[in-house]
Amino acid sequence: MAGIIDMVTSFGIDRTREVDWGLETLLEILAGHDVERAYTCSLRAVHYAGPEGNDETLAACEEHEVLQPVAVLDPRRFFDQQDEARTRFEQGFRVFRFFPNLQGWPLEFLPFVRICETLAELGARVILPASGYGQATRAASVLGDLGLPVLLIGGSYGNIGELMAVLSAHDHFYCDAHMQDSPFALEGLMERGGEEQVLFGSNSPDREFLAPLLMARHAEITERQRQGYLRDNALRFLGEGA
């Protein structure tokens, strides 16, 4: 079986806790779990300066083959973020991640919508959080008509029904399952959301990589579905076919 594609990782400093989320820690975790590719971003881009952080991400990815770059954009800055999107796309970034919960802006935020229109024109992919009620619904409402592939991350048992509804209505919307904490939840998401729309994201190094992996091992799904969840659905999201 080919290795895992992990769509949700990051590296850097957590200013709120004394934990080691450094690049070496992330690489060590990935090496322990047969990861073929891990999409990652620098937390410097999230908490401090987007361009500096995205440079850091690019440098890490150029040095370590397993890492693939995810650019962080901040719609609060608006104009230069459209340029940042184009620049990063030219550099090889294909996935762009947003942090509305941490940065305090709503999904209906017009600067965000305009940036996503630019990303859709470029043929990029977007990662958004969907950890609270209504967030996935709003993402679908705001971005559903753009045709932009969107990965919703961080959904849990609480909003799994909402994720099923959004995924089944929009086949270019996807979700991860690192907070779906039972095999039943993964089975349900694949059955009612879409078996090609659920993909693996560990949220390492903050979260334990093994937890979602064990859910996949224990889920009563076919081997083809398991392979889809751990790898092939990510390729579909990325537009690489599978």
């Binding site: 048992y157 904490d181 334990e208 990589f209 093994l210 937890a211 992996l213 064990l214 224990h218």
Partner: peptide
């Protein structure tokens, strides 16, 4: 359990 599967917590312990 059974809101959360035991393996989810076992993973934290085994890791």
């Amino acid at each position: 359990m059974d809101l959360i599967d035991p393996a989810f917590t076992i993973a934290m312990f085994e890791a």
